[in-house]
Amino acid sequence: MKPASRFLTRPDQVGVVHMTLDGEALTARPGDTVAAALLAHSGAASRQSVNGSSRTAFCMMGVCFDCLIEVDGQPNTQGCMTLVRDGMALRRQRGLRDIARSDADA
C-alpha cells in the first residue's frame, strides 16, 4: 500500500507540470522542486540509503543529500535543488548508482 502524502496541498497554486515517476504519470505545480513534488505525491520512500534502508527528502535546502534521485537519466541528482519541468522523467534509486554505458559495452 502506498502511504498517503504526509502533507496537505494548498489550493493557491495554478498550472500543472506533467512528469513521470518510475514510468507512471506524476503531476506537480510550476516552481516546485522535485523533492517537494514527490512529498506532495506520496509518503513513500524516494530513495534507498547505501545499506538499503528507506529515505525521503530531509533538509530541503541542499545540505543532507537524502533527496537524491535519477532525473532524466542523471542519477544522484539533488531533488530539493532541482525545479520540476514538463516531461521530466524521474526514477527512484534502489542501491548505488550505475555508470552510463558506453556504446562499446552494449
Binding site: V50, N76, G95, L96, R97, D98, I99
Partner: peptide, 12 residues
Amino acid sequence: RGELLITEKLGY
C-alpha cells in the same frame, strides 16, 4: 605532495 579525488559510490 600527492593529490587525490574520490567519487560518489557506484554499483558499477
